[in-house]
Design a protein around this nucleic acid. Structure first.
Lengths: 300, 300
DNA sequence: CCTCCCTATCGGAGAAGCCGATGGCATGAT
DNA sequence: ATCATGCCATCGGCTTCTCCGATAGGGAGG
Protein backbone atom coordinates (compact mmCIF):
# COMPACT_ATOMS: atom_id res chain seq x y z
CA UNK A 1 0.00 0.00 0.00
CA UNK A 2 1.20 3.44 -0.91
CA UNK A 3 0.95 6.52 1.25
CA UNK A 4 -0.38 8.40 -1.76
CA UNK A 5 -3.61 6.50 -1.43
CA UNK A 6 -3.94 7.49 2.21
CA UNK A 7 -3.21 11.10 1.35
CA UNK A 8 -5.85 10.96 -1.35
CA UNK A 9 -8.41 9.45 0.99
CA UNK A 10 -7.66 12.02 3.65
CA UNK A 11 -7.95 14.87 1.19
CA UNK A 12 -11.25 13.53 -0.08
CA UNK A 13 -12.70 13.35 3.40
CA UNK A 14 -11.37 16.77 4.37
CA UNK A 15 -12.51 18.52 1.23
CA UNK A 16 -15.73 16.60 1.03
CA UNK A 17 -15.28 15.41 -2.53
CA UNK A 18 -13.03 13.69 -4.98
CA UNK A 19 -12.88 16.60 -7.38
CA UNK A 20 -11.91 19.06 -4.67
CA UNK A 21 -9.32 16.65 -3.32
CA UNK A 22 -7.85 16.23 -6.79
CA UNK A 23 -7.51 19.96 -7.18
CA UNK A 24 -5.93 20.28 -3.74
CA UNK A 25 -3.45 17.49 -4.43
CA UNK A 26 -2.67 18.54 -8.00
CA UNK A 27 -4.07 15.38 -9.58
CA UNK A 28 -6.73 14.85 -12.18
CA UNK A 29 -10.10 13.91 -10.78
CA UNK A 30 -9.92 10.49 -12.37
CA UNK A 31 -6.59 9.81 -10.70
CA UNK A 32 -7.94 10.41 -7.23
CA UNK A 33 -10.91 8.26 -8.09
CA UNK A 34 -8.48 5.55 -9.11
CA UNK A 35 -6.42 5.96 -5.96
CA UNK A 36 -9.41 5.60 -3.69
CA UNK A 37 -10.59 2.59 -5.64
CA UNK A 38 -7.16 1.00 -5.34
CA UNK A 39 -7.22 1.65 -1.61
CA UNK A 40 -10.63 0.05 -1.32
CA UNK A 41 -9.52 -2.96 -3.30
CA UNK A 42 -6.45 -3.25 -1.09
CA UNK A 43 -8.44 -3.02 2.15
CA UNK A 44 -11.31 -5.10 0.85
CA UNK A 45 -13.86 -2.60 2.10
CA UNK A 46 -15.47 0.50 0.55
CA UNK A 47 -14.39 3.57 2.44
CA UNK A 48 -16.41 6.24 0.63
CA UNK A 49 -20.08 6.69 -0.01
CA UNK A 50 -20.25 8.50 -3.34
CA UNK A 51 -23.19 10.70 -4.07
CA UNK A 52 -23.83 13.10 -6.85
CA UNK A 53 -23.29 16.00 -4.49
CA UNK A 54 -20.14 14.88 -2.75
CA UNK A 55 -18.58 12.13 -0.77
CA UNK A 56 -18.89 10.89 2.78
CA UNK A 57 -16.75 8.23 4.46
CA UNK A 58 -18.43 4.93 5.18
CA UNK A 59 -18.28 3.40 8.61
CA UNK A 60 -15.11 1.62 7.59
CA UNK A 61 -13.81 4.92 6.24
CA UNK A 62 -14.38 6.55 9.59
CA UNK A 63 -12.39 3.80 11.26
CA UNK A 64 -9.71 4.28 8.65
CA UNK A 65 -9.45 8.00 9.18
CA UNK A 66 -7.40 8.12 12.41
CA UNK A 67 -5.12 5.37 11.13
CA UNK A 68 -4.49 7.23 7.91
CA UNK A 69 -3.51 10.32 9.87
CA UNK A 70 -1.28 8.39 12.24
CA UNK A 71 0.41 6.56 9.41
CA UNK A 72 1.13 9.75 7.51
CA UNK A 73 2.34 11.40 10.69
CA UNK A 74 4.63 8.49 11.39
CA UNK A 75 5.84 8.60 7.82
CA UNK A 76 6.82 12.24 8.19
CA UNK A 77 8.47 11.63 11.54
CA UNK A 78 10.39 8.74 10.04
CA UNK A 79 11.69 10.85 7.18
CA UNK A 80 12.85 13.54 9.56
CA UNK A 81 14.54 11.10 11.88
CA UNK A 82 16.18 9.01 9.20
CA UNK A 83 17.60 11.97 7.34
CA UNK A 84 19.15 13.14 10.58
CA UNK A 85 17.12 16.28 10.98
CA UNK A 86 16.03 17.51 14.35
CA UNK A 87 12.54 16.40 15.32
CA UNK A 88 9.67 18.68 14.45
CA UNK A 89 7.52 20.08 17.21
CA UNK A 90 4.27 21.54 15.93
CA UNK A 91 2.77 23.74 18.59
CA UNK A 92 -0.25 25.97 18.49
CA UNK A 93 -1.13 28.95 20.63
CA UNK A 94 -3.61 31.75 21.02
CA UNK A 95 -2.58 34.95 19.37
CA UNK A 96 -1.85 36.80 22.60
CA UNK A 97 0.44 34.05 23.85
CA UNK A 98 2.10 33.74 20.48
CA UNK A 99 2.65 37.50 20.32
CA UNK A 100 3.75 38.39 23.79
CA UNK A 101 5.13 35.37 25.47
CA UNK A 102 6.12 32.55 23.15
CA UNK A 103 8.79 34.50 21.26
CA UNK A 104 10.94 34.88 24.35
CA UNK A 105 10.34 31.31 25.41
CA UNK A 106 11.24 29.97 21.99
CA UNK A 107 14.30 32.17 21.78
CA UNK A 108 15.52 30.73 25.06
CA UNK A 109 14.62 27.28 23.83
CA UNK A 110 16.63 27.71 20.67
CA UNK A 111 19.57 29.03 22.65
CA UNK A 112 19.82 25.77 24.49
CA UNK A 113 17.75 26.51 27.57
CA UNK A 114 15.58 23.63 26.48
CA UNK A 115 18.32 21.21 27.31
CA UNK A 116 20.35 19.06 24.98
CA UNK A 117 17.30 17.87 23.07
CA UNK A 118 16.28 20.51 20.63
CA UNK A 119 13.74 20.49 17.88
CA UNK A 120 12.49 22.57 15.01
CA UNK A 121 9.40 24.34 16.21
CA UNK A 122 6.49 25.58 14.17
CA UNK A 123 3.87 27.79 15.77
CA UNK A 124 0.29 27.90 14.55
CA UNK A 125 -1.90 30.74 15.79
CA UNK A 126 -5.58 30.02 15.96
CA UNK A 127 -8.64 30.11 18.13
CA UNK A 128 -9.00 27.79 21.05
CA UNK A 129 -11.56 25.62 19.30
CA UNK A 130 -9.46 25.14 16.20
CA UNK A 131 -6.35 24.49 18.25
CA UNK A 132 -8.04 21.69 20.17
CA UNK A 133 -9.40 20.28 16.95
CA UNK A 134 -5.99 20.22 15.33
CA UNK A 135 -4.45 18.72 18.46
CA UNK A 136 -6.98 15.92 18.47
CA UNK A 137 -6.49 15.34 14.75
CA UNK A 138 -2.76 15.03 15.21
CA UNK A 139 -2.00 18.09 13.12
CA UNK A 140 -0.49 19.71 16.19
CA UNK A 141 1.71 18.13 18.83
CA UNK A 142 0.97 20.58 21.62
CA UNK A 143 -1.03 23.72 22.28
CA UNK A 144 -0.85 26.58 24.74
CA UNK A 145 -4.24 27.92 25.69
CA UNK A 146 -5.93 30.00 28.32
CA UNK A 147 -8.63 28.67 30.62
CA UNK A 148 -9.31 25.74 28.39
CA UNK A 149 -12.51 24.06 29.28
CA UNK A 150 -13.03 20.34 29.70
CA UNK A 151 -13.31 17.80 26.92
CA UNK A 152 -9.65 16.89 26.77
CA UNK A 153 -8.31 13.80 28.46
CA UNK A 154 -4.73 13.86 27.21
CA UNK A 155 -1.68 14.98 29.15
CA UNK A 156 -1.51 18.60 30.22
CA UNK A 157 0.30 20.92 32.59
CA UNK A 158 -0.42 24.31 34.06
CA UNK A 159 2.18 26.73 32.80
CA UNK A 160 1.23 29.76 34.84
CA UNK A 161 -1.52 32.09 35.90
CA UNK A 162 -2.42 35.58 34.89
CA UNK A 163 -5.38 37.89 35.25
CA UNK A 164 -7.42 40.10 33.04
CA UNK A 165 -6.97 43.77 33.78
CA UNK A 166 -8.82 46.88 32.76
CA UNK A 167 -6.42 49.42 31.28
CA UNK A 168 -6.57 52.89 29.79
CA UNK A 169 -4.15 55.58 28.81
CA UNK A 170 -3.01 57.64 31.82
CA UNK A 171 -4.77 60.65 30.34
CA UNK A 172 -8.11 58.87 30.19
CA UNK A 173 -10.76 60.26 32.56
CA UNK A 174 -11.28 56.88 34.20
CA UNK A 175 -7.66 56.77 35.26
CA UNK A 176 -8.15 59.73 37.54
CA UNK A 177 -10.96 58.23 39.55
CA UNK A 178 -9.99 56.54 42.83
CA UNK A 179 -11.59 54.33 43.79
CA UNK A 180 -13.38 53.46 40.62
CA UNK A 181 -16.94 52.17 40.73
CA UNK A 182 -18.88 50.12 38.29
CA UNK A 183 -21.07 53.09 37.55
CA UNK A 184 -18.04 55.03 36.36
CA UNK A 185 -17.06 52.17 34.11
CA UNK A 186 -20.54 51.93 32.67
CA UNK A 187 -20.30 55.41 31.29
CA UNK A 188 -17.04 54.74 29.49
CA UNK A 189 -16.22 53.26 26.11
CA UNK A 190 -14.74 49.80 25.78
CA UNK A 191 -12.33 48.30 23.28
CA UNK A 192 -13.04 44.66 22.67
CA UNK A 193 -11.89 41.96 20.32
CA UNK A 194 -14.05 39.99 17.97
CA UNK A 195 -16.54 37.42 19.09
CA UNK A 196 -14.93 34.04 19.71
CA UNK A 197 -11.69 35.45 21.02
CA UNK A 198 -11.09 34.34 24.55
CA UNK A 199 -10.66 37.89 25.82
CA UNK A 200 -13.96 38.74 24.31
CA UNK A 201 -15.41 35.96 26.39
CA UNK A 202 -13.80 37.45 29.47
CA UNK A 203 -15.26 40.76 28.50
CA UNK A 204 -18.67 39.25 28.11
CA UNK A 205 -18.50 37.72 31.56
CA UNK A 206 -17.28 40.99 32.93
CA UNK A 207 -19.93 42.86 31.02
CA UNK A 208 -22.72 40.72 32.32
CA UNK A 209 -21.68 41.64 35.81
CA UNK A 210 -21.47 45.29 35.00
CA UNK A 211 -24.71 45.38 33.07
CA UNK A 212 -25.86 45.67 29.52
CA UNK A 213 -25.33 49.39 29.20
CA UNK A 214 -21.60 49.16 28.52
CA UNK A 215 -20.60 51.15 25.50
CA UNK A 216 -18.45 49.34 23.00
CA UNK A 217 -16.04 51.47 21.10
CA UNK A 218 -14.56 49.12 18.62
CA UNK A 219 -14.25 45.56 17.58
CA UNK A 220 -10.99 44.44 16.13
CA UNK A 221 -9.16 41.20 15.53
CA UNK A 222 -5.73 42.42 16.49
CA UNK A 223 -4.73 42.58 20.10
CA UNK A 224 -1.89 44.84 19.15
CA UNK A 225 -4.17 47.31 17.41
CA UNK A 226 -6.48 47.23 20.39
CA UNK A 227 -3.62 47.92 22.73
CA UNK A 228 -2.44 50.85 20.68
CA UNK A 229 -5.94 52.26 20.59
CA UNK A 230 -5.97 52.10 24.35
CA UNK A 231 -2.58 53.82 24.50
CA UNK A 232 -3.98 56.57 22.30
CA UNK A 233 -6.75 57.19 24.79
CA UNK A 234 -9.48 55.74 22.66
CA UNK A 235 -11.08 53.86 25.57
CA UNK A 236 -10.68 51.16 28.18
CA UNK A 237 -9.61 47.66 27.26
CA UNK A 238 -9.92 44.37 29.07
CA UNK A 239 -6.74 42.45 28.39
CA UNK A 240 -4.51 39.84 30.02
CA UNK A 241 -1.95 41.57 32.13
CA UNK A 242 1.05 39.92 30.49
CA UNK A 243 0.12 41.40 27.14
CA UNK A 244 0.23 44.98 28.45
CA UNK A 245 3.01 44.58 30.98
CA UNK A 246 5.43 46.60 28.88
CA UNK A 247 2.99 49.48 28.52
CA UNK A 248 2.20 49.39 32.22
CA UNK A 249 5.89 49.56 33.01
CA UNK A 250 6.54 52.41 30.61
CA UNK A 251 3.49 54.34 31.77
CA UNK A 252 1.73 54.24 28.42
CA UNK A 253 -1.15 52.44 30.08
CA UNK A 254 -2.43 52.33 33.63
CA UNK A 255 -4.36 49.67 35.40
CA UNK A 256 -7.73 50.87 36.58
CA UNK A 257 -8.50 50.70 40.25
CA UNK A 258 -11.55 48.47 40.09
CA UNK A 259 -12.04 45.61 42.49
CA UNK A 260 -14.88 43.82 40.78
CA UNK A 261 -14.54 41.35 38.02
CA UNK A 262 -10.86 40.57 37.68
CA UNK A 263 -10.94 37.37 35.69
CA UNK A 264 -8.29 34.83 36.45
CA UNK A 265 -6.53 33.17 33.52
CA UNK A 266 -4.82 29.82 33.57
CA UNK A 267 -2.19 29.21 30.92
CA UNK A 268 -2.15 25.54 30.16
CA UNK A 269 -0.09 23.29 27.92
CA UNK A 270 -1.77 20.29 26.36
CA UNK A 271 -0.09 17.74 24.19
CA UNK A 272 -0.52 14.46 22.40
CA UNK A 273 0.71 11.09 23.51
CA UNK A 274 3.15 9.11 21.45
CA UNK A 275 5.27 11.97 20.20
CA UNK A 276 8.33 9.89 19.46
CA UNK A 277 11.56 11.86 19.26
CA UNK A 278 9.71 15.13 19.77
CA UNK A 279 8.62 14.06 23.26
CA UNK A 280 11.83 15.02 25.03
CA UNK A 281 12.08 18.49 23.46
CA UNK A 282 8.43 19.10 24.28
CA UNK A 283 8.97 18.15 27.89
CA UNK A 284 11.89 20.53 28.01
CA UNK A 285 9.81 23.25 26.38
CA UNK A 286 6.96 22.86 28.85
CA UNK A 287 9.35 23.01 31.78
CA UNK A 288 10.91 26.06 30.22
CA UNK A 289 7.55 27.76 29.89
CA UNK A 290 6.82 27.08 33.53
CA UNK A 291 10.06 28.76 34.55
CA UNK A 292 9.48 31.53 32.04
CA UNK A 293 6.34 33.12 33.36
CA UNK A 294 6.53 36.88 32.92
CA UNK A 295 6.74 39.15 35.92
CA UNK A 296 3.03 39.65 35.88
CA UNK A 297 2.50 35.88 36.25
CA UNK A 298 1.85 36.61 39.92
CA UNK A 299 -1.63 35.51 40.66
CA UNK A 300 -1.58 32.10 42.25
CA UNK B 1 6.16 5.36 -0.37
CA UNK B 2 5.02 1.79 -0.45
CA UNK B 3 4.98 -0.58 2.50
CA UNK B 4 6.60 -3.20 0.26
CA UNK B 5 9.80 -1.22 0.42
CA UNK B 6 9.71 -1.21 4.21
CA UNK B 7 9.03 -4.92 4.30
CA UNK B 8 11.95 -5.48 1.96
CA UNK B 9 14.26 -3.35 4.08
CA UNK B 10 13.17 -5.13 7.23
CA UNK B 11 13.68 -8.53 5.68
CA UNK B 12 17.13 -7.54 4.46
CA UNK B 13 18.18 -6.40 7.92
CA UNK B 14 16.72 -9.45 9.61
CA UNK B 15 18.16 -11.98 7.20
CA UNK B 16 21.43 -10.14 6.83
CA UNK B 17 21.37 -9.95 3.06
CA UNK B 18 19.45 -8.97 -0.02
CA UNK B 19 19.50 -12.43 -1.53
CA UNK B 20 18.20 -14.09 1.61
CA UNK B 21 15.52 -11.44 1.98
CA UNK B 22 14.45 -11.98 -1.62
CA UNK B 23 14.08 -15.67 -1.02
CA UNK B 24 12.12 -15.11 2.16
CA UNK B 25 9.80 -12.63 0.48
CA UNK B 26 9.41 -14.58 -2.73
CA UNK B 27 11.02 -11.94 -4.94
CA UNK B 28 13.93 -12.10 -7.27
CA UNK B 29 17.15 -10.78 -5.82
CA UNK B 30 17.21 -7.93 -8.27
CA UNK B 31 13.74 -6.87 -7.20
CA UNK B 32 14.69 -6.50 -3.57
CA UNK B 33 17.79 -4.63 -4.64
CA UNK B 34 15.53 -2.32 -6.62
CA UNK B 35 13.13 -1.89 -3.73
CA UNK B 36 15.85 -0.89 -1.33
CA UNK B 37 17.29 1.49 -3.87
CA UNK B 38 13.88 3.06 -4.40
CA UNK B 39 13.51 3.43 -0.65
CA UNK B 40 16.90 5.09 -0.41
CA UNK B 41 16.07 7.45 -3.25
CA UNK B 42 12.79 8.28 -1.56
CA UNK B 43 14.39 8.95 1.82
CA UNK B 44 17.43 10.65 0.34
CA UNK B 45 19.79 8.60 2.51
CA UNK B 46 21.50 5.23 2.04
CA UNK B 47 20.16 2.76 4.56
CA UNK B 48 22.31 -0.26 3.77
CA UNK B 49 26.03 -0.82 3.66
CA UNK B 50 26.51 -3.46 0.99
CA UNK B 51 29.47 -5.77 1.20
CA UNK B 52 30.34 -8.80 -0.77
CA UNK B 53 29.50 -10.98 2.19
CA UNK B 54 26.20 -9.46 3.19
CA UNK B 55 24.49 -6.29 4.22
CA UNK B 56 24.45 -4.14 7.33
CA UNK B 57 22.19 -1.15 8.00
CA UNK B 58 23.85 2.23 7.98
CA UNK B 59 23.35 4.65 10.83
CA UNK B 60 20.33 6.04 9.01
CA UNK B 61 19.13 2.50 8.48
CA UNK B 62 19.30 1.83 12.19
CA UNK B 63 17.21 4.92 12.81
CA UNK B 64 14.81 3.72 10.15
CA UNK B 65 14.41 0.27 11.65
CA UNK B 66 12.01 1.03 14.52
CA UNK B 67 9.95 3.29 12.30
CA UNK B 68 9.63 0.61 9.66
CA UNK B 69 8.40 -1.83 12.27
CA UNK B 70 5.96 0.64 13.75
CA UNK B 71 4.63 1.59 10.34
CA UNK B 72 4.06 -2.00 9.34
CA UNK B 73 2.47 -2.71 12.70
CA UNK B 74 0.17 0.23 12.29
CA UNK B 75 -0.63 -0.88 8.78
CA UNK B 76 -1.70 -4.29 10.02
CA UNK B 77 -3.70 -2.83 12.86
CA UNK B 78 -5.39 -0.50 10.42
CA UNK B 79 -6.39 -3.34 8.14
CA UNK B 80 -7.83 -5.31 11.02
CA UNK B 81 -9.75 -2.37 12.37
CA UNK B 82 -11.05 -1.12 9.02
CA UNK B 83 -12.28 -4.52 7.93
CA UNK B 84 -14.19 -4.79 11.17
CA UNK B 85 -12.25 -7.64 12.66
CA UNK B 86 -11.57 -7.86 16.34
CA UNK B 87 -8.23 -6.41 17.37
CA UNK B 88 -5.27 -8.75 17.56
CA UNK B 89 -3.47 -9.19 20.84
CA UNK B 90 -0.09 -10.83 20.45
CA UNK B 91 1.07 -12.10 23.79
CA UNK B 92 4.09 -14.12 24.73
CA UNK B 93 4.73 -16.28 27.75
CA UNK B 94 7.17 -18.72 29.24
CA UNK B 95 6.39 -22.31 28.50
CA UNK B 96 5.29 -23.16 32.03
CA UNK B 97 2.84 -20.29 32.15
CA UNK B 98 1.59 -21.05 28.65
CA UNK B 99 1.12 -24.72 29.57
CA UNK B 100 -0.39 -24.59 33.00
CA UNK B 101 -2.02 -21.28 33.52
CA UNK B 102 -2.72 -19.32 30.36
CA UNK B 103 -5.14 -21.85 28.83
CA UNK B 104 -7.66 -21.39 31.61
CA UNK B 105 -7.22 -17.65 31.63
CA UNK B 106 -7.69 -17.40 27.88
CA UNK B 107 -10.68 -19.69 27.97
CA UNK B 108 -12.32 -17.43 30.52
CA UNK B 109 -11.28 -14.44 28.43
CA UNK B 110 -12.88 -15.86 25.32
CA UNK B 111 -16.04 -16.66 27.24
CA UNK B 112 -16.54 -13.03 28.01
CA UNK B 113 -14.84 -12.75 31.38
CA UNK B 114 -12.57 -10.21 29.77
CA UNK B 115 -15.39 -7.76 29.49
CA UNK B 116 -17.17 -6.49 26.43
CA UNK B 117 -13.91 -5.77 24.62
CA UNK B 118 -12.57 -8.96 23.19
CA UNK B 119 -9.72 -9.62 20.85
CA UNK B 120 -8.12 -12.40 18.89
CA UNK B 121 -5.20 -13.64 20.93
CA UNK B 122 -2.05 -15.29 19.71
CA UNK B 123 0.36 -16.81 22.19
CA UNK B 124 4.06 -17.14 21.51
CA UNK B 125 6.10 -19.37 23.77
CA UNK B 126 9.74 -18.50 24.15
CA UNK B 127 12.49 -17.80 26.61
CA UNK B 128 12.47 -14.71 28.73
CA UNK B 129 15.20 -13.07 26.73
CA UNK B 130 13.52 -13.61 23.40
CA UNK B 131 10.17 -12.53 24.79
CA UNK B 132 11.58 -9.23 25.96
CA UNK B 133 13.33 -8.76 22.65
CA UNK B 134 10.15 -9.33 20.70
CA UNK B 135 8.22 -7.06 23.03
CA UNK B 136 10.72 -4.27 22.50
CA UNK B 137 10.70 -4.85 18.76
CA UNK B 138 6.94 -4.56 18.67
CA UNK B 139 6.46 -8.14 17.49
CA UNK B 140 4.58 -8.83 20.71
CA UNK B 141 2.08 -6.63 22.49
CA UNK B 142 2.46 -8.12 25.94
CA UNK B 143 4.38 -10.84 27.73
CA UNK B 144 3.93 -12.83 30.92
CA UNK B 145 7.18 -13.68 32.61
CA UNK B 146 8.55 -14.81 35.92
CA UNK B 147 10.94 -12.76 38.01
CA UNK B 148 11.87 -10.61 35.09
CA UNK B 149 14.93 -8.63 35.84
CA UNK B 150 15.36 -4.92 35.20
CA UNK B 151 15.96 -3.32 31.84
CA UNK B 152 12.35 -2.64 30.99
CA UNK B 153 10.80 0.74 31.53
CA UNK B 154 7.41 0.18 29.94
CA UNK B 155 4.15 -0.45 31.74
CA UNK B 156 3.86 -3.59 33.81
CA UNK B 157 1.79 -5.18 36.54
CA UNK B 158 2.32 -7.95 39.03
CA UNK B 159 -0.07 -10.75 38.25
CA UNK B 160 0.65 -12.98 41.19
CA UNK B 161 3.27 -14.78 43.21
CA UNK B 162 4.35 -18.36 43.38
CA UNK B 163 7.29 -20.29 44.75
CA UNK B 164 9.65 -22.91 43.53
CA UNK B 165 9.19 -26.23 45.25
CA UNK B 166 11.24 -29.37 45.42
CA UNK B 167 9.12 -32.38 44.49
CA UNK B 168 9.55 -36.12 44.12
CA UNK B 169 7.34 -39.13 43.69
CA UNK B 170 5.88 -40.30 47.03
CA UNK B 171 7.91 -43.47 46.72
CA UNK B 172 11.19 -41.61 46.41
CA UNK B 173 13.55 -42.09 49.38
CA UNK B 174 13.78 -38.35 50.00
CA UNK B 175 10.04 -38.18 50.56
CA UNK B 176 10.31 -40.32 53.66
CA UNK B 177 12.82 -38.12 55.46
CA UNK B 178 11.41 -35.61 57.96
CA UNK B 179 12.79 -33.14 58.40
CA UNK B 180 14.93 -33.11 55.33
CA UNK B 181 18.44 -31.65 55.49
CA UNK B 182 20.63 -30.24 52.77
CA UNK B 183 22.98 -33.18 53.18
CA UNK B 184 20.16 -35.53 52.27
CA UNK B 185 19.41 -33.52 49.18
CA UNK B 186 23.04 -33.47 48.16
CA UNK B 187 23.06 -37.21 47.83
CA UNK B 188 20.04 -37.30 45.54
CA UNK B 189 19.61 -36.92 41.81
CA UNK B 190 18.07 -33.82 40.32
CA UNK B 191 15.97 -33.28 37.25
CA UNK B 192 16.65 -29.93 35.68
CA UNK B 193 15.75 -28.11 32.51
CA UNK B 194 18.13 -26.78 29.93
CA UNK B 195 20.42 -23.86 30.54
CA UNK B 196 18.65 -20.57 29.95
CA UNK B 197 15.31 -21.73 31.24
CA UNK B 198 14.23 -19.70 34.19
CA UNK B 199 13.73 -22.76 36.39
CA UNK B 200 17.22 -23.81 35.60
CA UNK B 201 18.33 -20.44 36.92
CA UNK B 202 16.37 -21.08 40.10
CA UNK B 203 18.03 -24.43 40.32
CA UNK B 204 21.44 -22.89 39.90
CA UNK B 205 20.76 -20.43 42.70
CA UNK B 206 19.48 -23.23 44.84
CA UNK B 207 22.41 -25.39 43.87
CA UNK B 208 24.94 -22.79 44.83
CA UNK B 209 23.49 -22.77 48.29
CA UNK B 210 23.50 -26.52 48.53
CA UNK B 211 26.96 -26.92 47.12
CA UNK B 212 28.57 -28.12 43.93
CA UNK B 213 28.15 -31.79 44.65
CA UNK B 214 24.54 -31.96 43.46
CA UNK B 215 23.99 -34.80 41.09
CA UNK B 216 22.11 -33.91 37.92
CA UNK B 217 20.00 -36.68 36.52
CA UNK B 218 18.79 -35.23 33.28
CA UNK B 219 18.51 -32.16 31.20
CA UNK B 220 15.44 -31.72 29.13
CA UNK B 221 13.60 -28.93 27.39
CA UNK B 222 10.13 -30.01 28.29
CA UNK B 223 8.69 -29.20 31.66
CA UNK B 224 6.04 -31.79 31.09
CA UNK B 225 8.57 -34.54 30.44
CA UNK B 226 10.48 -33.47 33.51
CA UNK B 227 7.36 -33.60 35.62
CA UNK B 228 6.52 -37.08 34.41
CA UNK B 229 10.04 -38.24 35.12
CA UNK B 230 9.61 -37.00 38.66
CA UNK B 231 6.27 -38.80 38.92
CA UNK B 232 8.02 -41.99 37.80
CA UNK B 233 10.46 -41.68 40.65
CA UNK B 234 13.41 -40.72 38.52
CA UNK B 235 14.58 -37.98 40.91
CA UNK B 236 13.77 -34.69 42.55
CA UNK B 237 12.72 -31.68 40.54
CA UNK B 238 12.71 -28.00 41.31
CA UNK B 239 9.61 -26.53 39.73
CA UNK B 240 7.12 -23.72 40.25
CA UNK B 241 4.37 -24.92 42.46
CA UNK B 242 1.55 -23.98 40.12
CA UNK B 243 2.94 -26.30 37.46
CA UNK B 244 2.75 -29.34 39.74
CA UNK B 245 -0.34 -28.42 41.70
CA UNK B 246 -2.42 -31.11 40.02
CA UNK B 247 0.14 -33.82 40.80
CA UNK B 248 0.44 -32.61 44.38
CA UNK B 249 -3.33 -32.76 44.75
CA UNK B 250 -3.57 -36.24 43.25
CA UNK B 251 -0.65 -37.52 45.25
CA UNK B 252 1.51 -38.29 42.26
CA UNK B 253 4.11 -35.93 43.64
CA UNK B 254 4.94 -34.74 47.13
CA UNK B 255 6.54 -31.56 48.24
CA UNK B 256 9.78 -32.15 50.11
CA UNK B 257 10.08 -30.88 53.63
CA UNK B 258 13.08 -28.61 53.16
CA UNK B 259 13.19 -25.14 54.67
CA UNK B 260 16.18 -23.74 52.85
CA UNK B 261 16.15 -22.20 49.44
CA UNK B 262 12.53 -21.87 48.44
CA UNK B 263 12.77 -19.35 45.64
CA UNK B 264 9.97 -16.87 45.32
CA UNK B 265 8.56 -16.24 41.86
CA UNK B 266 6.79 -13.12 40.71
CA UNK B 267 4.50 -13.47 37.72
CA UNK B 268 4.54 -10.19 35.89
CA UNK B 269 2.76 -8.81 32.85
CA UNK B 270 4.62 -6.33 30.69
CA UNK B 271 3.21 -4.60 27.66
CA UNK B 272 3.84 -1.99 25.04
CA UNK B 273 2.49 1.52 24.96
CA UNK B 274 0.34 2.69 22.13
CA UNK B 275 -1.61 -0.48 21.56
CA UNK B 276 -4.57 1.18 19.89
CA UNK B 277 -7.75 -0.88 19.89
CA UNK B 278 -5.97 -3.79 21.55
CA UNK B 279 -5.34 -1.71 24.67
CA UNK B 280 -8.74 -2.24 26.27
CA UNK B 281 -8.78 -6.02 25.77
CA UNK B 282 -5.26 -6.23 27.15
CA UNK B 283 -6.24 -4.28 30.25
CA UNK B 284 -9.14 -6.64 30.72
CA UNK B 285 -6.86 -9.63 30.22
CA UNK B 286 -4.34 -8.42 32.79
CA UNK B 287 -7.08 -7.81 35.32
CA UNK B 288 -8.41 -11.24 34.57
CA UNK B 289 -5.01 -12.83 35.15
CA UNK B 290 -4.76 -11.06 38.50
CA UNK B 291 -8.09 -12.52 39.58
CA UNK B 292 -7.16 -15.87 38.10
CA UNK B 293 -4.19 -16.88 40.17
CA UNK B 294 -4.26 -20.60 40.81
CA UNK B 295 -4.83 -21.93 44.29
CA UNK B 296 -1.10 -22.28 44.83
CA UNK B 297 -0.67 -18.53 44.18
CA UNK B 298 -0.50 -18.15 47.94
CA UNK B 299 2.85 -16.70 48.76
CA UNK B 300 2.57 -13.00 49.30
C1' DC C 1 44.69 -17.61 -8.78
C1' DC C 2 40.39 -19.58 -8.63
C1' DT C 3 35.94 -20.24 -6.65
C1' DC C 4 32.00 -18.86 -4.26
C1' DC C 5 28.72 -15.84 -2.75
C1' DC C 6 26.89 -11.38 -2.59
C1' DT C 7 25.17 -7.32 -4.91
C1' DA C 8 24.44 -3.92 -8.98
C1' DT C 9 22.93 -3.27 -13.51
C1' DC C 10 20.56 -4.01 -17.85
C1' DG C 11 16.74 -4.96 -21.08
C1' DG C 12 12.26 -6.48 -21.67
C1' DA C 13 7.46 -7.83 -20.38
C1' DG C 14 3.77 -6.75 -17.68
C1' DA C 15 1.26 -3.88 -14.42
C1' DA C 16 0.08 0.32 -12.47
C1' DG C 17 -0.37 5.36 -12.40
C1' DC C 18 -1.90 9.32 -14.47
C1' DC C 19 -4.41 12.05 -17.73
C1' DG C 20 -8.20 14.03 -20.74
C1' DA C 21 -12.57 13.05 -22.44
C1' DT C 22 -16.98 11.15 -22.02
C1' DG C 23 -21.19 9.65 -19.85
C1' DG C 24 -24.47 8.72 -15.98
C1' DC C 25 -26.80 10.54 -12.16
C1' DA C 26 -28.86 13.43 -8.70
C1' DT C 27 -29.96 18.14 -7.45
C1' DG C 28 -31.90 22.53 -8.01
C1' DA C 29 -33.45 26.32 -10.87
C1' DT C 30 -36.26 27.92 -14.71
C1' DA D 1 -41.28 19.23 -17.13
C1' DT D 2 -36.96 20.61 -18.68
C1' DC D 3 -32.50 22.23 -18.48
C1' DA D 4 -28.19 23.37 -16.33
C1' DT D 5 -24.89 22.23 -12.96
C1' DG D 6 -21.78 19.69 -10.35
C1' DC D 7 -20.41 15.28 -8.91
C1' DC D 8 -18.28 10.79 -9.80
C1' DA D 9 -17.10 6.42 -12.72
C1' DT D 10 -15.25 4.72 -16.78
C1' DC D 11 -12.46 4.33 -20.93
C1' DG D 12 -8.39 4.57 -24.04
C1' DG D 13 -3.82 6.31 -24.34
C1' DC D 14 0.58 7.32 -22.73
C1' DT D 15 4.09 7.14 -19.28
C1' DT D 16 6.17 5.27 -15.39
C1' DC D 17 7.01 1.72 -12.24
C1' DT D 18 7.67 -3.11 -10.95
C1' DC D 19 9.46 -7.32 -11.43
C1' DC D 20 12.12 -10.69 -13.61
C1' DG D 21 16.12 -13.33 -15.67
C1' DA D 22 20.60 -12.80 -17.09
C1' DT D 23 24.94 -10.80 -16.66
C1' DA D 24 28.83 -8.44 -14.60
C1' DG D 25 31.71 -6.67 -10.77
C1' DG D 26 34.00 -7.43 -6.40
C1' DG D 27 35.66 -9.03 -2.01
C1' DA D 28 36.57 -13.39 1.13
C1' DG D 29 38.63 -17.62 1.59
C1' DG D 30 40.86 -21.71 0.00
Amino acid sequence: MDTRQLRAFLAVVETGGISAAAEQLGYAQSSVSDQVRTLERDLGVPVLNRTSVGTVPTEAGQRLLPYARRLLDLDGEMRRCVSGQRPLLRIGALQSLADEWLPEVLTAFDHGAGGPDTADVTVTVSSRGRLMEELNDGRLDAVFTLDSGPGYDGPSAVVGYDRVVLVTAPSHPLAAIHPLTLDDVKRSEFLVTEIGCIYRQCFDEFGRDVGPSLKIAMITGSLNALRRLAVNGRGAALLPRFSVQAELDSGDLVMLDLKEGPVRLTVEARWREGLGPAAAPLRALVELTQRFSPASWAMA
